[in-house]
C-alpha cells in the first residue's frame, strides 16, 4: 500500500508515492536524491538528519514522509541561496567547525534555526540549543564558535 504526498523541498514541489512507514529522511535521500541529510542513529539521538520543516528544525528520521504532506522542507542543499552561502556555512569553514563532515549538515540546519532572529545568542544558549546534535570529531568548540560568529553576522546582514 502506498500513499501519495506532495512536499516542497528547497522550493521545488514533488509528488511522491511512499509506503506509509517510509521515514522522511529516506524519502529525501533515496526518492529525491538529496543525500546531504545524513542518518547517524536509529533512536532520535544524534541530529545528523536535521532539516527545516516550515522553518523549524526537525529530525527527519523521526517523522514519516506522509506526515510532511503539504509542508515545506529545507535541507542542507537548500541552505545557500543565489546570493551565496548562508553565514553559518561560511563560519563553519572559517572556524574549522568540521572534520569528517558527517554531522555537519545536521549541525548547520540546527544552528541556522537556532540563530534565526537571535543574533545576540550566548555561548551557553548555543551549547544548550545544539544538545540534540552529536559530533564525534571536533569537540564542539569550533562548532559553537562558528554558530556564534554566524549569529553576529546575520545581525549585520
Amino acid at each position: 500500500m502506498r500513499s501519495s504526498i506532495r512536499i516542497t523541498v528547497n522550493g521545488v514541489e514533488h509528488d511522491l508515492e511512499v509506503e506509509p512507514r517510509r521515514l522522511l529522511v529516506h524519502a529525501l535521500r533515496e526518492d529525491l536524491g538529496l543525500t546531504g541529510t545524513h542518518v547517524g542513529c536509529d533512536t532520535s539521538s544524534c541530529g545528523a538528519c536535521t532539516v527545516h520543516l516550515d522553518g523549524d528544525a526537525v529530525l527527519s528520521c523521526t517523522m514519516l514522509a506522509v506526515q510532511a504532506n503539504g509542508r515545506s522542507i529545507t535541507t542542507v542543499e537548500g541552505l545557500a541561496t543565489a546570493g551565496g552561502l548562508h553565514p553559518i556555512q561560511t563560519a563553519f569553514h572559517e572556524r574549522h567547525a568540521l572534520q569528517c563532515g558527517f554531522c555537519t549538515p545536521g549541525m548547520l540546519m540546527a544552528g541556522a534555526a537556532l540563530i534565526e532572529g537571535n543574533p545576540e545568542i550566548t555561548e551557553a544558549e548555543v551549547r544548550q540549543g545544539l544538545e540534540g546534535n552529536l559530533c564525534r570529531c571536533t569537540g564542539y568548540q569550533n562548532i559553537v564558535d562558528a554558530v556564534l560568529v554566524a549569529a553576529r553576522e546575520t545581525a549585520r546582514a
Partner: peptide, 21 residues
C-alpha cells in the same frame, strides 16, 4: 590554511557510502 575538504561538505555534496546507488 582553511580546508579544501570543506567546500562540498558544507553544502551537502559529500559522498559517503550510503549516498551511493
Amino acid at each position: 590554511v582553511l580546508r579544501k575538504e570543506d567546500a562540498k561538505l558544507i553544502v551537502g555534496q559529500g559522498r559517503f557510502v550510503d549516498d551511493l546507488v
